[in-house]
Design a protein around this nucleic acid. Sequence first.
DNA 1: CCCTGAATGTAGACGCCGCCAACAATGCTG
DNA 2: CAGCATTGTTGGCGGCGTCTACATTCAGGG
Lengths: 202, 202
Amino acid sequence: MPAEKPETRPYHHGDLRSALLAAAERTLRDKGTSASLSLRELARDIGVSHAAPGRHFKDKQALLNALALVGYDRMAETLEAADEPGLPLQDRLTTLARAYLRFAIDNAELLEVMYARKHEPDAAEQMTAAIDRTVGALERAVAAAQQRGEIVEGDPEHLTLVVGTALHGLASFAITGKFTTEAAMGSVAELVHHLMYGLTPR
Amino acid sequence: MPAEKPETRPYHHGDLRSALLAAAERTLRDKGTSASLSLRELARDIGVSHAAPGRHFKDKQALLNALALVGYDRMAETLEAADEPGLPLQDRLTTLARAYLRFAIDNAELLEVMYARKHEPDAAEQMTAAIDRTVGALERAVAAAQQRGEIVEGDPEHLTLVVGTALHGLASFAITGKFTTEAAMGSVAELVHHLMYGLTPR
DNA sequence: CCCTGAATGTAGACGCCGCCAACAATGCTG
DNA sequence: CAGCATTGTTGGCGGCGTCTACATTCAGGG
């Protein structure tokens, strides 16, 4: 019988790439910001050498990019799961808005990585595609309502922009601490109402 | 005649704190992101020792906080200068929106620092005050229009939120590259129109 | 006018980091 | 099963933020 555990580590991890992304997300949640996230620490947590991450991500930014894509995927899934195509637009938007806001608040650190203004050179197209998928949920809702004559005519993309910007802005405010979670969630219904009916009297 | 310039450096810089902030902003503009901003490099640029910045900012985050406050100040000034209180709300908002968007695009890196979700412990109140001053420009416009009966009744703060979130969201999209500058600027008028009159037919 | 303490800048060190290159173990495929 | 690509390890380089001890300058009261 060997003096030490023989199979402590099989030399090859098996799926180090996924393990790194998972560890990064967990650490991100704990530390609270992406700046204090170190490849060496991730490697330590997982139990591989400090240079091992380099085999899967050419540099730290590459890992952050991959993490952002994971985030977009998860966000799109969340929105698609929350969507209720049967509802009239106002209720449907309110539902989507709540889901987005909830996700943003629960994953604030991940959003920071996703919205970081620095993965421009490459990976930009993957990023764009991921964003479009997210916005798609809103766009479908708006387009459907428009076809039912529920809302004004015009380029659906422009109308979606109104909702998208408001929503994104609200989430930003909530994340950066201008609101409490409750205040932000509580504002959603009224916000959507104003978007639907405008600021001028009828 | 002395062999070397006698007054190359007066030992005490005079206003190192301001010099650091200025250098930081310049470097930020060049490098493009706040992550690659080093106290040691700033010190080198200015010509002081690597530990000198520590006399004015207890750590790197403290410098970023101060930089954020500078940014908020400048932004508020920009908005206040652009505001035209005489205009009807729609035009007034469009003007303010354009000014905000222009500032955001021209100072994208600074905005990244301002909206960073990490200076929570202290400095939070200064930050909040700075943000309120910025939002104040919008709030005044909305309140004035409301008093003139131009727009619906209700808590002005809530109505301002509608405009504020949409604006902030649009700026975020523009900054992170979802739009070109022109596309974003071109969307402003229509966006404000939809905010004023809503999505539902009249 | 100098003396003394507070501000401000310097020099050096510590530990951490990202990244690179050389080497070792493993998996895969012909 | 031989050989090559993949994956992980070790060691090292330079840069970073921060701390401590020390040097210089400034400012104000005797």
